[in-house]
């Protein structure tokens, strides 16, 4: 590696590390805060930070999607739901903290155990990077001819996953229509006596 490249690598790694640290700080603030509005805003910031991290990790398509979906759509949905419900989390002790800590500690321990065997970060010879992913890089130019390999894989090699993904979005839209749309009986039990929206006189 040339000295210039090395410096660049150093700085990009430094950016990664600081973004990651900021993510933890934001997540911790979200955990502590009880102002739902603040938490929703922080979750937008959290998504933007992770989008920035994805750019730094070369995942530009993912960063774009995360910024649009995570920071944009998701925040708007959360704000809407918050306005329709409550603004503030109740101060309360749920008695679940100990259960939460136990579960979380167990899961964390399992993952930390797993990291001991993980290939080093950025290792080009790691199995994940040297096998199918590399094959996609090799073949796309000749077989698909699209410059963006992520697009090529998304639409061709793993196109069926993408069809499923479209179906997931359709399902979610249909689900929201069933839950909130006409005939959903909004308002719970009491709505039974009320005529459906479009039947209202």
């Amino acid at each position: 590696m040339t000295p210039g490249a090395e410096t660049a690598a150093f700085w990009s790694r430094l950016i990664d590390l600081s973004l990651l640290t900021m993510l933890v700080l934001v997540a911790y603030t979200m955990l502590r805060s009880r102002h739902l509005f603040a938490i929703v805003m922080l979750s937008g910031i959290y998504s933007l930070l992770s989008a920035a991290l994805f750019v730094s990790l070369d995942a530009v398509d993912v960063a774009f999607t995360e910024a649009a979906v995570g920071a944009g759509v998701s925040t708007v949905l959360m704000l809407g739901a918050m306005l329709l419900t409550v603004r503030r989390e109740k101060t309360q002790r749920l008695g679940r903290a100990s259960l939460g800590i136990a579960v979380v500690a167990l899961v964390g321990a399992a993952l930390i155990y797993a990291t001991t065997a993980m290939p080093a970060f950025g290792d080009p010879a790691a199995p994940a990077n040297s096998y199918i992913g590399a094959v996609y890089m090799e073949r796309t130019a000749a077989e698909i001819g699209v410059p963006n390999v992520v697009t090529a894989v998304l639409a061709s090699y793993r196109g069926f996953d993408t069809l499923g993904e479209t179906m997931v979005i359709f399902t979610a839209g249909l689900g929201v229509m069933l839950l909130l749309g006409p005939g959903s009986g909004r308002g719970g039990r009491s709505v039974k006596d009320r005529p459906g929206k479009d039947e209202a006189p």
Partner: peptide, 29 residues
């Protein structure tokens, strides 16, 4: 036969199931 495809379809079935279960709210919230 693809492990990630399992996840996609698990989510398709789960999301639809959540909505279907919630439809019972017309009788009982």
């Amino acid at each position: 036969g693809d492990a990630f495809n399992v996840f996609v379809f698990v989510e398709i079935s789960s999301l639809s199931t959540y909505a279907l279960v919630a439809l019972g709210a017309r009788r009982d919230r």
